[in-house]
Design a protein around this nucleic acid. Sequence first.
DNA 1: ATACCTGTCGATCCATATATCGACCATGAC
DNA 2: GTCATGGTCGATATATGGATCGACAGGTAT
Lengths: 103, 103
Amino acid sequence: MTDLNIDIDRDAILKALASPVRREMLAWLKEPAKHFSDEHHPLEMGICAGQFERCGLSQSTISSHLSALVASGLVTQRRVGQWAFYQRNEPVIAAFRAALDDL
Amino acid sequence: MTDLNIDIDRDAILKALASPVRREMLAWLKEPAKHFSDEHHPLEMGICAGQFERCGLSQSTISSHLSALVASGLVTQRRVGQWAFYQRNEPVIAAFRAALDDL
DNA sequence: ATACCTGTCGATCCATATATCGACCATGAC
DNA sequence: GTCATGGTCGATATATGGATCGACAGGTAT
């Protein structure tokens, strides 16, 4: 089972979750196969930043949303060459959910 | 079986084979697993250009040898992002060997 | 009204692997 | 000798995805 005692940054996480766009991104990452189909990269690597352009926002806006998610710890980034792949960080998400009980 | 009637560029091929460096590169590509170990890319994609730096030549020299091999048709190039992967073009090699009988 | 924060954009910057360029040297043909 | 050719180099250019920057608009608090 996952460790719920990871130290998380509640502030950054809540700030990250404060935007509908970022919440939707996080949801997309939950089921990559359902929302993305990248013929160029296997899904196991995570979702390539460019794939998010489907949401209609500009590259720069997407990049900043993604970096907010990464900064919060909710999402991890993996760089491969010129690409950046993103995945949910489930342990952090679980720990955050657990921490909400202390509210 | 492979088709030996592919039209090949004898001139370019012989020019490519005229250099010991290029012949060695071609030989390395024959057994990728034996000569290369790239933890970053699966061997099935071919050999990444950067891997050839082991031969001690400069990047620019390597690049020009590789492009001569590609131009000759003996080798194929596959671009993936900022990388270029190379593989032997066995059908062309076979056709060339067959064509040598007409000398 | 002013100040502040967030989201957004276009433009620009950065990082990286590869490609091209210009110069030099050695060799062989003439 | 002169010339052309091929290999080599360092320096520079290219390409591309992503990151950062500066400006602007809308909302909210004071």
